[in-house]
């Protein structure tokens, strides 16, 4: 389908002998918000890190199968390009503590040694911070360190850092699990806006968050993609018993 942005074909991932992601096939459309749920250790993070090739950085980690970004296998692409096109936001906000807010936003250019003129950088910073709904809060303190911001602001700064690279897809690994409720809702509100420009994949343990923000939900269990369906369907009448047991909190 033309509208497909990322597609995993028989994707498998291992840590040594530990088969962590098993034969995952999934196809994600442009401008969709996908929630990924599942019990701890079921391979959500590993799958997510497979998409932007972070998985291969871990010693002993291997993967098989394909991850197609716009029908091109990411394994055949330049890593800088892949990670620019596929941004990632982590569980804990991790702005670079040695850089200012401004520098943090353009960190992808600075750290990769990509030359950008000051004027262009100014534009990128303003656009990215506006997109991440942070501009108004920080426009007067762009040259202060990013670590003085609140947790929610830091997380939005990290989102701006990803946006600055002009990605198509942004991966979020439990992006609000270290945030307080107010910060959480500020980040959640942002998802709704980001959706118009980007495709989002969000790993979350917060069932209500998945229900609130996502269009479709993927449920992983023991490395398998058990169910992938409209979020409404998943939360009213899931097709698989394991999904139901998980979302209703009934584990044996």
């Amino acid at each position: 389908m033309e509208n497909t942005i990322v597609k995993a074909e028989n994707y498998n991932a291992w840590f040594g002998d530990n088969h962590v992601v098993k034969d995952v096939n999934i196809s994600i459309n442009r401008n969709e918000v996908i929630a990924v749920m599942g019990p701890s250790g079921c391979g959500k993070t590993t799958f997510l890190r497979g998409i932007n090739r972070m998985h291969e950085l871990i010693p002993g980690a291997t993967a098989k199968g394909k991850i197609l970004l716009d029908s091109q296998n990411v394994l055949d692409m330049n890593v800088i390009y892949v990670r620019a096109k596929i941004g990632m936001v982590f569980q804990r906000p991790n702005p670079f503590p040695n850089l200012s807010i401004y520098e943090n936003v353009v960190a992808g250019y600075l750290l990769n040694g990509i030359k950008v003129s000051k004027a262009d950088k100014d534009v990128i910073v303003e656009k990215s911070l506006t997109s991440s709904a942070l501009w108004n809060e920080v426009k007067d303190s762009l040259h202060k360190k990013g670590t003085f911001l609140s947790g929610g602001q830091q997380q939005r700064l990290c989102i701006a850092r990803a946006i600055a690279m002009e990605p198509e897809l942004i991966l979020f690994d439990e992006p609000t699990s270290a945030l307080d409720p107010i910060s959480t809702s500020s980040v959640e509100a942002l998802f709704h806006e980001l959706k118009t420009k980007y495709t989002l994949i969000i790993v979350t343990h917060n069932m209500q968050q998945a229900a609130r923000v996502s269009d479709r939900t993927a449920f992983f269990y023991m490395g398998e993609l058990v169910e992938f369906d409209d979020t409404k369907q998943m939360f009213t009448a899931p097709a698989d018993q394991r999904t139901q047991n998980y979302i209703t909190g009934r584990f044996s």
Partner: peptide
């Protein structure tokens, strides 16, 4: 809608 088009492979999650 509760007993659903049952799972392909039976997982370890069982109905309580």
């Amino acid at each position: 809608a509760k007993i659903l088009k049952h799972a392909k492979s039976s997982g370890k999650l069982t109905e309580e």
